[in-house]
Design a binder for these strands. Structure first.
Lengths: 142, 142
DNA sequence: CATTGTTTGCAACTTAGTTGCATAATATGA
DNA sequence: TCATATTATGCAACTAAGTTGCAAACAATG
């Protein structure tokens, strides 16, 4: 991990008015070093380091609340999380990209350049958020 | 539950080459009588009847395998299930409708008439399935 | 209606997620 | 840079979700 990234992390936490703690910095490092969405259990596997389960749950919840990460819905038992783009703030998420889950490697990634298309709901429905999850086979697994 | 529905259920199970058992019939009745997607725990709450947890898990898995129901991804801890339309078969799902989760009542429904739009993935990705989940406020809760 | 094969229920287990509280670490202001 | 107020962490103990193996019960078939 470069010093530049370390500085970014510190800045990111400060911008969200979060105190800078070891756990938070290390979890953010994991996000930055991984090229896919992470599930809770990743934090026990990845890195030699282990974190207390409860701390991981609370840290992820804090990051969600602050708009630092977003959650990706699944039909299996593990919710995945990925870093938000810089345009996201506490009260205004702009994660309007498509998520892709590879059936081969199991990896879930954000397709940042693939926009979620407009969807016209029937009359009477108010839309707050759209989640699009595509499953298939990724570039690497072909 | 009308006799007509009972007959439908029997027929549906027979068409999927599943033996007709009490549990399967009753779980399908619950699906037909509810106007939204059901989560696992619904089957213990709904109806005076209780089913063994393990039986519910296995029944839902069987229905998924046979294309009788489909699962709806969530970012909370409970996967939801809804009946498939008749065009779905064991090896060919056509659930290309949008799912809507109401933030007020918590209900999740299939918007059968709202099609999932075309999505153009980056080069090298093969698409097998698309899940779209919209959250907001439903007609009833406004 | 007896036999075969499938489904169910139970027990016991693993994994996921939550809550309360004491301890430890961070931020801040003198 | 130190003392204090505030916040985060780790532990224990818990609830909820999901799985596996096996014996008993049931459905399909001839």
């Amino acid at each position: 991990m470069s010093n530049k990234n370390k500085a970014n992390i510190t800045e990111l936490l400060r911008a969200s008015k979060l105190s800078i703690t070891d756990t938070r910095v290390k979890i953010l490092e994991l996000f930055m070093n991984s090229n896919g969405a992470l599930e809770h259990s990743s934090f026990e596997k990845l890195a030699g380091q282990t974190f207390d389960r409860v701390t991981v749950y609370r840290t992820l919840q804090t990051f969600l609340d602050k708009g630092i990460i977003h959650s990706i819905p699944t039909t299996d038992t593990s919710i995945r999380y990925a870093l938000c783009k810089s345009e996201c703030t506490e009260h205004n998420h702009h994660d309007h990209h498509v998520h892709f889950k590879c059936e081969e490697c199991g990896n879930t990634i954000c397709l940042d350049d693939t926009d979620v298309p407009e969807i016209h709901l029937p009359k009477g429905y108010a839309m707050h958020n759209i989640d699009v999850v595509v499953s298939g086979v990724c570039k690497q697994c072909k």
